[in-house]
């Protein structure tokens, strides 16, 4: 996912920017104070960044993100831009985009938030030492505070990026699971088959209904076979959802055939008192398919009559 997409996903507009800046207390005077430190930042950038990477490379788990010297040189260059960005005197949407780009890059390589947060603390500590060395205590403290505000602002964006990326991943997975759990097969002209395997909870029941209805209309189906041989438990809820689906299929002008009804399922349905209306039922899928063909005016015959 690129940073543009994150910007949209996080709804980062002028209003959000203003609200977040107010919450993190990133004022114009902070930005001005940091911009005044530009010369200081450029002077110390190499030293700060070197110390920063020394720490990252000294830790086994963070070291693996930097496979070779070239990689280190490259990220150091990027890190320098990022570092100097703190002293640009800006905190506008362009700045946010810049930060989102960094967050997106970290997410891409799988650098988890703990390393990011730990490294950022180190950053702040290093800078505070440099500030105290170069300026009187009062100015150093003010500058450190401004820096802290902007750094925390940055971190909030980075963490939002991680969350947004995860939510997006979960969404994609759920979509994939949905498609896998509600397969619809066209077995013959205008005859659809939906074989159900696994547990049917209320979310899946509603997906089953929606998927099936859309396919009935798309394929102009007249007959729909739902095979529940692979559903381990058919309780009142499952039975009820099947009846609902059947009712909805009828409203579209198609008929439902329920197959895969084993003796335990038949027993449960009757004992629970579930009324099976508006649908044909058969024990096995094979009979269901035969029934659908028969209803459609077709027959399966043996090529050579036996007996």
């Amino acid at each position: 996912m690129d940073h543009q997409k994150y910007l949209k996903l996080l709804r980062f507009d002028e209003a959000e920017l203003a609200s977040r800046r107010a919450f993190f207390k990133v004022g114009d005077e902070d930005l001005k104070r940091l911009a005044d430190l530009r010369a200081f930042a450029e002077q110390h950038s190499d030293a700060v960044i070197d110390a920063f990477y020394e720490m990252l490379l000294g830790h086994a788990e963070t070291k693996r993100f930097f496979p070779d010297e070239a990689a280190v040189r490259r990220v150091k260059r990027l890190q320098r831009d990022y570092f100097l960005g703190l002293f640009s005197g800006r905190c506008d949407l362009e700045y946010v985009q810049d930060r989102l780009r960094v967050g997106a890059a970290h997410e891409r390589i799988g650098l988890s938030p703990k390393w990011y947060l730990g490294a950022y603390r180190q950053y702040l500590a290093l800078l505070r030492t440099k500030l105290l060395a170069d300026f009187d205590a009062e100015r150093a403290e003010l500058c450190a505070q401004s820096l802290e505000r902007l750094v925390f602002f940055d971190m909030s964006i980075a963490i939002d990026t991680y969350i947004a990326a995860n939510v997006e991943t979960i969404g994609r997975h759920q979509h994939a699971i949905r498609e896998l759990s509600t397969p619809v097969i066209r077995v013959h002209d205008r005859i659809l088959l939906m074989p159900l395997v696994g547990t049917v909870d209320s979310l899946r029941a509603s997906q089953i209904m929606e998927t099936l209805l859309v396919r009935v209309v798309d394929e102009k189906a007249r007959y729909v076979i739902i095979d529940i041989a692979g559903v381990p438990v058919v309780d009142t809820k499952v039975a009820d959802s099947l009846v609902k689906t059947t009712s909805a299929v009828r409203l579209l002008g198609a008929e439902t055939i329920l197959t895969g009804i084993s003796p335990p399922i038949a027993r449960t349905i009757v004992q629970l008192g579930v009324e099976i209306v508006n649908m044909h039922t058969r024990a096995r899928l094979q009979e269901g398919i035969e029934l659908a063909l028969e209803l459609a005016g077709k027959v399966i015959v043996d090529r050579k009559p036996t007996g």
Partner: peptide, 21 residues
């Protein structure tokens, strides 16, 4: 499809009426 699902979920199955695609 959306209309059929909504009606059935509301418990309105329109029994006694005929439908076609």
């Amino acid at each position: 499809p959306e209309v059929a699902a909504t009606l059935v979920r509301m418990g309105y199955t329109m029994e006694g009426v005929r439908f076609a695609l």
